[in-house]
């Protein structure tokens, strides 16, 4: 389970697309708006390498997300 906060709520969709592209699936997704940001919780299933890459990609997306809103 990974919990993240993002300014851009659309990141949720992007992460799910990425997961499927990497051959993973999501086992649970929950998201809610808190103030101006979104709090999202994901759990994915898939090959270990793909999950690690997905994790790295999510981190990258969140770094860029923070930069956008500075």
């Amino acid at each position: 389970m990974r919990t993240v906060t993002a300014n851009d709520g659309r990141i949720l969709a992007r992460i799910i697309h990425l997961a499927h592209r990497f051959g993973c699936t999501y086992t649970s997704v929950a998201a809610r708006q808190t103030g101006a940001a979104y709090r999202m919780e994901f759990a994915f299933a898939g090959p270990g390498d793909a999950l690690r890459r997905l994790d790295a990609q999510i981190t990258k997306l969140l770094d860029d997300d923070r930069e956008t809103m500075e």
């Binding site: 851009d8 697309h17 990425l18």
Partner: peptide, 13 residues
Amino acid sequence: VAAITHQVTKRNI
């Protein structure tokens, strides 16, 4: 176009 390019840009606004 934001949805279309979502996966293929670093970011769109």
